[in-house]
């Protein structure tokens, strides 16, 4: 079954969507969208590094993403605003990564494959890495769920209940780095943030508890992955971007639905 490249691609897409959904919810709730972006951009530097050192891409990306994420969280509140810092670091690391890659003239690499992903080229090893990372992230987030939620709501409430917001932030940071590292093959550096944020944002209007939002975001992400894969096969379009287009479409419909619904509710005096 795994010998069929379409099956492998579908499984890769599902793996990433499942891990990205609950994490994406936290990124939306904590207004960390830029943070996800910055970590993903830094991944290009990780790619360059692993090519130079001849280590697996996954390892290089993981290390650089982790470094980036910890650096950003520890620098926050020391003189510069978070978004300024992220802007500086995300784009510098992307630029440094791109320059570094250009020095590797004995290796011809397809940069596009890292920027936009190459889900159709996912091999069995890639699949194992993706699902391994995905299961790890899901278990981590599920295990710390209550603490993460409380720390997201209010750091002081968390402290008062004996939950350390710093530790929860660290857990999210690690989970984010793992997701970026496993998703690079599927949607690429530039579109990872989309797979994190858009399914969560799409799910929001239909949910009354955080748990339903995470589950619905996962379903939306999975549906978009499969639909995008199918559409790109039929229309002969790049797969990663097609998946993101699908989820963006879903977001559009969800917001329209919510607008209409909200509007009619306010009119009926609710």
């Amino acid at each position: 079954m795994l010998d069929d490249f379409l099956v492998r691609s579908a499984l890769a897409g599902l793996g990433v969507a499942l891990a990205a959904a609950p994490l994406g919810c936290f990124i939306v709730w904590r207004r960390m969208a830029y943070f996800g972006d910055a970590t993903a951009h830094a991944a290009v530097l990780g790619v360059a590094l692993s090519l130079v050192l001849e280590t697996p891409i996954f390892a290089g990306v993981l290390v650089i993403s982790l470094m980036m994420a910890t650096l950003v969280s520890s620098l926050t509140g020391r003189g510069y605003a978070m978004d300024t810092l992220l802007g500086v670091m995300a784009h510098s690391s992307l630029a440094v990564g791109l320059v570094a890659v250009s020095f590797l003239d004995n290796i011809r690499i397809d940069l596009m494959a890292y920027l936009f992903g190459d889900i159709l080229a996912v091999g069995k090893t890639d699949l194992a890495v993706i699902w391994g990372g995905s299961v790890l992230v899901i278990s981590l987030v599920a295990y710390r769920w209550s603490g993460l939620l409380l720390a997201t709501l209010n750091p002081d409430l968390a402290h008062a209940s004996g939950v350390s917001p710093k530790r929860e932030q660290l857990i999210l940071t690690i989970a984010l780095a793992i997701v970026v590292a496993v998703a690079i093959k599927v949607v690429g550096v530039l579109l990872i943030a989309a797979m994190l944020i858009i399914p969560a944002a799409t799910a929001r209007p239909f949910c009354k508890t955080p748990e339903t939002m995470a589950v619905l975001a996962a379903i939306i992400g999975c549906a978009a992955s499969l639909a995008g894969l199918r559409a790109s096969y039929q229309l002969d379009t790049p797969t990663g971007p097609t998946i993101v287009c699908m989820v963006a479409l879903m977001f559009l419909f969800a917001s329209l639905f919510w607008r209409l619904n909200h509007h009619s509710r306010t009119r009926s005096g609710d």
Partner: peptide
Amino acid sequence: DETLPMSVRRFMSLP
């Protein structure tokens, strides 16, 4: 944050 759906009951059962 408005993006975080949370019922009163759920909020009170944290952590």
